[in-house]
Amino acid sequence: MSADLGQTPRNLLVCDRSSFLDEKNRLASQVEKLHFNYKVSVLLPACSSAPSHLDSVISGFSTFYLIKKLPIYELLDKHFLETSVYQGSVYGLSYRTRIDQDNCIALMPNGHLTLSLDKDSFELLGFEGKPSRYNHRRSSSRFVVSVDLTDSSMAPGGRGYLRLLTGLKSRLQLQTDFMLSHHPGGGASLQSLLSRYDSSAHRPEVSRRILTDLSCPALLTSDLQSKDPHGFIEWLGAVDADVSSENSPSSFLSSLVCPEPKTTVSRALSVSICGLLLPQDVHRLIQELRVYLDQPRLESWVSMTVHGFADSPVSWSDNEHGFLRGGENFYSLLMFHDHTYHLHLATGAHDACPP
């Protein structure tokens, strides 16, 4: 066994406990900082079907678009900048590109364009960048170019703009399948770009599972902080992945167990939403889950887990994201009927500390 495989990879788990009623809670800003979400998982104990107001939000996540073989210089198109980037929050991410092997691109809602490039592509581009923080070798084999498209130096016709446009159009000629979404304009503001290429609209996929006799931690708002947060996150992941946690600690196949003390709920509803999911839709879902909790329930909590794309060039805010073994960047929100919540933010070894 190599020394690398013999070590447990570093991971980060930040825990925050607050109340929705506290004006200083940071939940809204923390949700917004994870730009590129591919999956939202909701667990509703003592429930077999979501009420109509909640189901409407779950089924109403924004449409996103997939553009085949998009030349990346098109993201510098003057009309696209004026109608989309400057006017609202645009989310764009290269599709099925691997952050440790391929050229990956992200267009963030603040107008920042990030290109994670291999060494040859970076040198061809001929634009300012910096070595990746997560190069696997001693010599730099990967570089990151980050540009603020809203900065005056990047205004169409300016020196910086023309230099990047020339690099992408004439020297590197980078193109990739690209996912794109826009809030609040939606597809209308993107239509000019979409119409020039092979593009398709996609609705996020929703799946629902009814769970019976589910072993759950006996959660209390006052004592959760003293428990093992890693064990709770593992249990949530096992439920979402439909992996049994009814195992003995000596089990060869799985050592996942429900944290103690535990209880059993006769039924629970597990819902997953997959696609290019916008933080604004996640906000709406959180608000509806709070409404759901206001109703009399057998259980006094619900959970929601939001996973970022494993191969996104960035994770939270503009921080560089790397893959290493798993590419983890996600958060789990545990909400209670008394308006308190516990937030767990997690990353793998190739990420900065979550906000």
Score class of each variant (00 low, 15 high):
Asp213Asn: 12
Leu298His: 08
Tyr331Asp: 03
Leu278Asp: 01
Pro354Glu: 06
Asp22Arg: 14
Asp16Val: 09
Leu180Cys: 03
Arg297Tyr: 01
Trp301His: 12
Gln225Phe: 09
Leu34His: 01
Asp213Thr: 12
Leu172Gly: 02
Glu23Gln: 13
Glu328Gly: 04
Leu107Pro: 03
Ser189Tyr: 14
Asn319Leu: 10
Val265Asn: 02
Gly231His: 10
Arg98Trp: 13
Ser300Tyr: 02
Thr8Trp: 11
Arg196Asp: 08
Arg138Gly: 08
Val145Ser: 04
Leu236Asp: 04
Met1Lys: 12
Arg17Tyr: 08
Cys353Gln: 15
Ala241Ser: 15
Lys33Arg: 13
Phe64Ile: 05
Thr150Asp: 06
Asp228Arg: 11
Ser170Lys: 09
Ile58Arg: 00
Lys33Phe: 10
Tyr65Leu: 09
Phe20Ile: 03
Leu44Val: 01
Leu211Asn: 02
Phe336Pro: 01
Met304Phe: 00
Asp4Leu: 14
Lys68Leu: 10
Thr263Ser: 02
Leu174Asn: 00
Leu343Glu: 03
Val306His: 02
Asp151Asn: 15
Pro259Arg: 13
Glu123Met: 11
Tyr134Glu: 06
His339Ile: 00
Arg290Lys: 14
Pro296Val: 02
Leu277Lys: 02
Arg142Pro: 08
Pro313Tyr: 05
Val40Met: 02
Glu246Arg: 15
His202Thr: 05
Tyr65Val: 02
Leu253Lys: 11
Arg96Thr: 07
Ser146Cys: 13
Ser121Cys: 10
Glu205Gly: 01
Tyr341Arg: 00
Gly167Met: 01
Ala238Trp: 10
Leu194Glu: 05
Ser56Gln: 12
Ser49Tyr: 07
Arg290Asn: 06
Gly231Glu: 14
His344Met: 13
Met335Pro: 00
Pro51Ser: 07
Asp22Ser: 14
Ser207Ala: 13
Phe80Thr: 03
Gly186Ala: 12
Gln173Leu: 04
Cys47Asn: 01
Pro354His: 08
Ser332Thr: 13
Glu299Val: 08
Asn319Tyr: 11
Arg325Ile: 14
Leu81Asn: 10
Glu288Cys: 10
Val302Met: 03
Asn11Val: 15
Glu288Asp: 06
Pro131Ala: 15
Ser170Thr: 04
Glu74Asp: 05
Asp177Trp: 01
Asn110His: 12
Leu174Ala: 00
Tyr73Gly: 01
Leu172Lys: 02
Ser84Met: 14
Arg325Pro: 05
His344Ser: 07
Ser29Asp: 09
His344Ile: 04
Ile58Met: 03
Ser332Val: 04
Pro261Ala: 08
Val257Lys: 15
Ser41Asn: 07
Val40Trp: 00
Ile210Pro: 00
Asp223Met: 11
Thr166Pro: 01
Leu76Asn: 02
Glu320Lys: 07
Met304Tyr: 01
Val85Ala: 09
Leu149Phe: 10
Ser303Pro: 06
Phe64Val: 04
Pro229Gln: 07
Thr166Cys: 09
Ser189Trp: 06
Leu174Asp: 00
